[in-house]
Structures are given as structure tokens and as C-alpha cells.
Write a protein that binds this DNA or RNA. Structure first.
Length: 264
DNA sequence: ATGGTGGACAATCCA
């Protein structure tokens, strides 16, 4: 079972990219972020012609998450259930048999001094409490995917010394992300790629960023231990960037031995 | 120190 996460930066403008990438990459499940479309206008029919069903929650212009699948999930819920902001266009939880897929688009935070940065920190704390309430880290098969808008370690950004005050590398953002992971997640991609220079995000404003290695790892595939031990590979797929209008993010793709999920 | 590009949507906001 191949599972991917992909911040598409508008699912409608990225349809040609998806039409080229989905058949060749052939993921069974794709966690999509930044669809930037309200539900009435989501291109479900176009994705269906590519062989994928979709579950989605979006809004006009901003945010939006979707789960693309070859075999339909048993249930999908959106947003938080803790009485705080629902953020249903940033969080989707889909169950495929025993496999729980948590797809998140974490708030970027804007600036360290901006209220949205505190909102971002609180978002990670809320997500950790959601994991605590809903799942058993030692037993359940939970996959946490998405654009998490944090470079976890210095090797996850091309010039860490430049970005200590950046909302995606500030020590407070890295700490709450680490505390959320510590609930019980393994960084599946990093297990297969311990080497530096593996980035999933390249700023549009940096010319030839990929070729120059000027990027960030902001997109993650994280798994509870029982799921992580079934992983056989993970990679950042730069081929969608070969198209005419690439997203600023690249997909992260991982392979899991989950025969019961494929054939359920 | 600043601005660089791209997306949505129609003047800026967000990343």
C-alpha cells in the first residue's frame, strides 16, 4: 500500500500535475492540503476519471484538505472535537479498516509576533490531546501526514542559522512539534533517508531552488510503531515539479505492507 | 535590508 502526502497549492490549478503524477506514482491513498476550493467546486469528477475517489472539506481561496483513495474509507471526520476552533478545512481523519489516516494542514503562523503563531503552537497541543483521546499509541495503526509547516531538525532546512526567528523553524514551533510526535510517532521518511538535503518545500521566490538545494522539509509521513514497522520505503517525489506549473511542495510517498487494508 | 513568485480573485491577502 503506497500512501502519499501532497500540498498541491490549489487542487484546480494542479489538475494537470495530478493527471500526470497519479497514474505513474499510483498511490492507494493521498493526503492533500491547500485545495483552496469550496466543496461545491471541488473537482471530484475529474479525479474520478483518474481512478480516485475523494473526501474533502474546503473553503474559498484558503486552506482545504482532501483524502484521495482507490478504495473508499469506512469513515471520514473533519476538524477538532475539543470545543475550540473546528478548523475542518485543516484536519481530516479517515479510517480504512484498522488504518487511521490523519491529514493535517498546520497553520503557517505568519510571523513570530503575530497571533497566528500562538495559534499554531496551540494547534499542535490540541492535536496531541486529540491523539491521546482517540488512539492508543502502542496498539493502533495511526498515520499522521501533511504539511506540518515546521522543519523538525537543523538538517530539515538548508540554512538553519538564518531561520531561528522563522515561524517554521523557531524553537517554540520545533518544541511543540516534537512534543506532539513524542505521543508515539516515528518519522517514517527520515528512517529511510537519514542524509541531509532532503526537502519537500521550495519557495517560489527563490529561483532554481531545487537545483540549488534551497528548501525545507515541511511535509511528513509519521506512523505509530506498529505501523512504522510495516514501512518498507519512503521518498520525496520531485517528478511533479517537472510539469509546467509545479506546486511549491513536493509529495512525500511511503510504502507499507498492509495486505488487510488493500483487500478489506 | 529588501524583495523575489504564485494562487485566488479582483485590491490585496497569504504563503
Amino acid at each position: 500500500m503506497r500512501i502519499a502526502t501532497f500540498n498541491v497549492n490549489s487542487v484546480r490549478s494542479r489538475l494537470p500535475t495530478l493527471a500526470a503524477w497519479l497514474p505513474s506514482a499510483a498511490p492507494g491513498i493521498v493526503c492533500v492540503q491547500e485545495t483552496k476550493v469550496q466543496d461545491a467546486d471541488f473537482p471530484a469528477a475529474e479525479l474520478r476519471t483518474l481512478g480516485y475517489g475523494s473526501s474533502f472539506r474546503g473553503e474559498k481561496t484558503y486552506n482545504g484538505v482532501a483524502v484521495l483513495w482507490r478504495r473508499a474509507p469506512d469513515e471520514v471526520t473533519y476538524g477538532f472535537d475539543d470545543g475550540g476552533p473546528f478548523d475542518e478545512t485543516r484536519l481530516a481523519i479517515a479510517r480504512f479498516g484498522e488504518l487511521w489516516v490523519v491529514n493535517s494542514y498546520v497553520p503557517q503562523g505568519r510571523e513570530i509576533s503575530h497571533p497566528m503563531f500562538q495559534y499554531k503552537l496551540e494547534w499542535f497541543r490540541r492535536l496531541r490531546r486529540l491523539f491521546e483521546r482517540r488512539f492508543d499509541a502502542a496498539r493502533d495503526l495511526v498515520l499522521w501526514c501533511g504539511d506540518l509547516n515546521v522543519a523538525a531538525e537543523p538538517q530539515d532546512v538548508h540554512a538553519p542559522q538564518l531561520y531561528e526567528d522563522h515561524v517554521c523553524f523557531h524553537v517554540d514551533a520545533r518544541r511543540v512539534f516534537a512534543e506532539c510526535r513524542a505521543w508515539g510517532f516515528v518519522d517514517v521518511f527520515r528512517r529511510f533517508h537519514p542524509e541531509p538535503g532532503q526537502y519537500s518545500f521550495f519557495d517560489y521566490r527563490t529561483p532554481n531552488a531545487v537545483q540549488r538545494g534551497i528548501g525545507w522539509r515541511l511535509d511528513y509521513v509519521l506512523a505509530t510503531p506498529r505501523l512504522a514497522e510495516r514501512a518498507s520505503d519512503a521518498r520525496i517525489d520531485l517528478t511533479p515539479r517537472l510539469g509546467a506549473r509545479p506546486s511549491d511542495h513536493a509529495p512525500v510517498v511511503a510504502e507499507f505492507d498492509l495486505p488487510g487494508i488493500d483487500r478489506r
